[in-house]
Design a protein around this nucleic acid. Structure first.
Lengths: 117, 117
DNA sequence: ACCTAGTACCTTGTCTCACAAGGTACTAGG
DNA sequence: CCTAGTACCTTGTGAGACAAGGTACTAGGT
């Protein structure tokens, strides 16, 4: 990446992580590593989260009561920590989704020169 | 605001500020206080920036060479500090705009259950 | 038997930044 | 004269994104 522009992806996707994660977990329970790879592909590569960002974020959301965790073992592999959405998480998801759509339409309006007032 | 939800607006609009500001300054030169009020109305209230956030951000963008400042006095009022976009700023704006559209379409896909893969 | 790559979880330290809260100075209106 | 509005700014605090590291297991290659 060209110097001085490394931050584009980073800055823009800030704040969208919680919404994206909740949306994915809402569809079905997920484990951390799954989210890590799913986020990239499901969002067309536009949301790329690093491990050191995701795991603490999941713990924060768990503390906030938006998701719950449970260890589950399949076969002989090491158990995975699955996260499921709670009722509080569903409410949070709805609020974030609404706020996102408002922001997206607002930004689009602004980018199309809606600044004349 | 309900406790535990104060952060919605704050987190989502993170990273969108630079794009919004550049887009507004691209249309015509602006001064800080103008941006402060214009951002809210031009974006349907979805992008609300505080003074303590905007002024340092403008200085950062100036240091990065995206905008230039000049004091201009009209009448007897105190002079205003007008910001204009530079060539570097136009390039940055284009990059951010493209990245934003990619993020927006990626998020929309994800919110519409595009997570099945 | 060894080594590497992949899966899967985690933490610590650093640095950036959004905001609250304060400050300055001028103008206009009551 | 006092308040509200315009217009610029700073410092301090706290949150959080990421780099870099760690642990532990499995599977495949040589």
């Amino acid at each position: 990446m060209a110097p001085g522009e490394e931050g584009i992806q980073r800055e823009l996707s800030r704040g969208t992580m919680e919404l994206a994660v909740l949306a994915l977990i809402d569809a079905r329970k997920r484990y951390g590593y799954d989210l890590l790879t799913s986020l990239g592909s499901a969002s067309n590569g536009s949301i790329a989260i690093k491990e050191g960002t995701l795991y603490p974020a999941l713990h924060r959301m768990e503390d906030a009561g938006y998701i719950t965790a449970s260890w589950e073992a399949e076969g002989r592999a090491a158990p995975r920590k699955y996260y499921s959405i709670t009722d509080g998480g569903k409410a949070r998801l709805e609020a974030l989704r609404t706020e996102w759509r408002r922001l997206a339409s607002g930004m689009e309006r602004l980018l199309n020169g809606g600044a004349e007032s």
